[in-house]
Design a protein around this nucleic acid. Structure first.
Length: 206
DNA sequence: TCTCGGATTACT
DNA sequence: GTAATCCGAGAA
């Protein structure tokens, strides 16, 4: 099974976020099938870190496509993103949920959970299950420099993917930029169940 | 130096 | 419903 090449990440961030569904994420002895992602665009997306953080903009500028963008959220959870650049729309793809495949015992140990469908069903849970921290910010996940025991593998067959609005944001809340494996039991929030704010900030149509 | 908000989760 | 927990960014 071959690793994804950098050119996978040199396309439109929405296309890449969609195509990552079904991909197997291998991470230091553990692995899982990606079943939920969100796209964040460098330009025109107020929910993206690049809209408010010069450091994120700098990261996009200087790092190659396929690099991991890792950050601490709510002071507690490490969230794992992949850099997309060189296509029509650059951005970051948040990996939000996995179906665990390998290293399940280790993930259960880290998460203090028994049920496999709750191990990685959310971006914070996933980060904890895989043992991801800020030390992994900048890890190259495709091409030269990729660490052994880390990588991404294409699915063997076709995958059914649904689009939905993104979770837990307060800006650009109505972009349908969340992608899910259809009817999959390991996602964080099922398709069509994301609660929108009562008064939504206006978003331009993309 | 201080304040605030945030791509969340688990527990009451 | 809300505590836990901390960093980047901007104001002062």
């Amino acid at each position: 099974m071959a690793y994804l090449k950098p050119d996978f990440f040199e396309r439109d961030v929405l296309t890449v976020a969609r195509d990552l569904i079904g991909v197997e994420l291998e991470w230091q002895g553990c692995s899982g099938i990606i079943v939920e992602t969100e796209a964040y665009a460098v330009e025109g997306d107020l929910a993206c870190h690049t809209a408010s953080r010069p450091s994120a903009r700098d990261f996009v500028l200087k790092q190659p496509p396929g690099t991991a963008y890792v950050y601490l959220n709510y002071g507690m959870y490490w969230l794992f993103n992949l850099l997309v650049k060189g296509g029509n729309k650059d951005g970051l793809v948040l990996i939000r949920a996995l179906e665990p495949k390998r290293g399940i015992e280790l993930m259960q140990q880290r998460r203090n959970k028994l049920k496999p469908n709750e191990l990685c069903s959310g971006p914070g849970k996933l980060g904890r299950a895989l043992g991801i921290t800020g030390d992994h910010h900048g890890t190259i996940m495709a091409g030269r420099g990729r660490p052994a025991q880390c990588g991404l593998h294409l699915p063997s067959g076709p995958v059914s993917v649904l689009a939905d609005v993104r979770v837990g944001i307060s800006q650009a809340v109505d972009y349908p930029w969340r992608f899910l494996a259809a009817d999959h039991p390991h996602v964080s929030v099922p398709h069509g169940k994301v609660k929108l704010p009562l008064v939504k900030p206006p978003s331009p149509l993309m």
